[in-house]
Design a protein around this nucleic acid. Sequence first.
DNA 1: GATGAATGAGGATTCATTCAT
DNA 2: TATGAATGAATCCTCATTCAT
Lengths: 220, 220, 220, 220
Amino acid sequence: MAARAGRGADAASAQTGDPNLWDRVENASARRVLQAALVSFSERGYHATTTRRISQRADLSPTAMYAHYRSKMDLLVVISEIGHAAVLEAVDAAIADGTDTTDRVRRLVRTFTAWHARNHTVARVLQYEMRTIPAERFGPIRALRRDTEARLRDLLRAGIAESVFAIGDLEVATVSILSMGIDVARWYDGEPDPTALADAQSELVMRMIAVPNQERSEIG
Amino acid sequence: MAARAGRGADAASAQTGDPNLWDRVENASARRVLQAALVSFSERGYHATTTRRISQRADLSPTAMYAHYRSKMDLLVVISEIGHAAVLEAVDAAIADGTDTTDRVRRLVRTFTAWHARNHTVARVLQYEMRTIPAERFGPIRALRRDTEARLRDLLRAGIAESVFAIGDLEVATVSILSMGIDVARWYDGEPDPTALADAQSELVMRMIAVPNQERSEIG
Amino acid sequence: MAARAGRGADAASAQTGDPNLWDRVENASARRVLQAALVSFSERGYHATTTRRISQRADLSPTAMYAHYRSKMDLLVVISEIGHAAVLEAVDAAIADGTDTTDRVRRLVRTFTAWHARNHTVARVLQYEMRTIPAERFGPIRALRRDTEARLRDLLRAGIAESVFAIGDLEVATVSILSMGIDVARWYDGEPDPTALADAQSELVMRMIAVPNQERSEIG
Amino acid sequence: MAARAGRGADAASAQTGDPNLWDRVENASARRVLQAALVSFSERGYHATTTRRISQRADLSPTAMYAHYRSKMDLLVVISEIGHAAVLEAVDAAIADGTDTTDRVRRLVRTFTAWHARNHTVARVLQYEMRTIPAERFGPIRALRRDTEARLRDLLRAGIAESVFAIGDLEVATVSILSMGIDVARWYDGEPDPTALADAQSELVMRMIAVPNQERSEIG
DNA sequence: GATGAATGAGGATTCATTCAT
DNA sequence: TATGAATGAATCCTCATTCAT
């Protein structure tokens, strides 16, 4: 069984993305269960994943997961919370490194895209199983998503104010830029290299929002 | 239940998008079943949709669908085939109307985006349940997707050759542009107006790929 | 489809045994349905046979059988009645041809065995689906079976009285002799030739019941 | 329901024959399920038996059987394998006890018949549901049946070589003798006593195959 | 913490049969 | 006579979860 071979940290990380993501889950069994769930949810979707499959992939008995999680939905919620928090953290770190608005947007997009490529397994769960999470548990996730989106929107708005960006419809621009990164989760399977992809997409985005050369030179 | 009220053609089309889409399903019951499945698949996903729900929404007995479709999976496949075919048709029609490469790309993007907004219910099924379709039935769908993607790629390539587009990475550009339209299915819920959205997105795309003004003026 | 090829009388009789058996069913469609049911009941059993299968094999629509028979059970009952009646008729004809008790028993056994070989398709239904027929419809069939058994028992009793047979337990002998013929339905698949099999089995039976040579010569 | 009353070992064995037969099924629930299935398969046939009935008769929830068996078919296969193995074991034990060929045949027949009377519930399943078992699982059962048949055939052949048996057609004799025992499963319902029946049938068989007195005295 | 057995709810699907045509 | 559509009942089985150990 592949799961058996993949029990080690390295093999697993190939499927589950950045290994540090799951560091906060301290118990080893609990982490294995979570990663097994993650891979299955990503491959087949939440409803098509059985708790037995998860357990098998984690090399545990069918009921072992209940020692660590209250339910299958719990697994999805935890994965989703960790994932969404990680995206926001990455985005915030990227912004912090930026020197000016243009640079910050470029870094944000590059990071966002690279994250979705590198962590496309988690990303798929975040995006495709959002609707699966019941309203009463969705609150924190919604907040994280809104915050992430707000980071970009605020930068775009700032750039417009600074006259470095020319954007017709701020909302459409915000969501469209994020779409390019989010949708990476759907099609990405290792190619191209996350960094290369991130560079290419961020370049496209910058051209999309930049004030056209002529006008800028006129202004400058 | 809302479904009961929605049995009429108009109410249903509000949920199922362009009513002509389902014209090719001639039997009225078969069409109602298909539309009921469509709405449920879109709202809750394939696996979370029960055949009973579908039948109920179609105002038929729990087993009536089996007179028209061999299985629940059949419904998904038919929906997916019709939907993907419709996208390609729309794209082809848009291209045919264009006057030059730039115009054709703009029309393609506008149409693609508008289609995904107007038919976001179907579009959600097309994008989110692709992995659910078993390999042996996926062939025709894959072909349609590849063709649709090829339409854009070919136009971009032509524009580069004509020096009206400046694109660093053709593949990334192709998929990123489509991502903006595809991802509309995820977030769209009636706002903004499909035409307005299509105009805004196509404008973003055109700026993204157009040769910068300066250079172009140099050439002209 | 094999059924289509086998629609003619000759091909069908290969599977359904003596074609005259079904002559009394005058309507051609009704007869085709009956023979289709017969073959399926024999091959897979009554409960594993669907009415759709029967109709298909008879080259008719799934509901066509209801024009001729009230239910699936009706088919089984009719087949069973015709079959059991035919066995008794054959046995009676065999007895009628016999010259003395010994000859009559030999002819009865030979005929009984040959019938089960030649009509093993029907015979299998008669024997294996007996318990399937509900009590309220089983009366006539029970009568036919009792009569057939009585024919042999009476002959054996007569032979004992005439001192041509030496039999310890009349009941066990009766049923055991019939078992040899009945069980042919279970294993027979065309080999050996029904006549050869009938000769061999009847010889075994005659030795089984005949007064031993020594004693007979003493008596004579 | 009678099943509830029959939960005790003794009551069950009245229906399921030799209780030792099921000893190899160690888990008590699994054994109860198996015996419940056995009785139902025997009474109504495999296809007419629902898994619910089996569970009810075993005093378990409708799904409890799935903890022990993978499917309803699994139950049939296990029953069939255990049953056929038991027949062969009984036959082998009988042969081992014999002093010469004639004695061995007599013992074989007596044992075979008595087994089918005593275990007529299992025997009915073995004989009537053979065709129900799919080819890919039938291998071991076919082997057991062939072995059992070979035991008799080999003895008959030996007896012919030793001139203690006079048999026209070895194959017909082999199958006909077994038929007498097998068919007991069809009609037996407690009468006569298995031993008495076995004695009567074995006597019939011995007369059927023995070299006639006269000839034998000539030889001796 | 971990497990094997057990369970209730529900799932897709099949089936014999009916009905309108 | 024949059919396509429709249906209610039932079937096998799966699933997430619980419980005793």
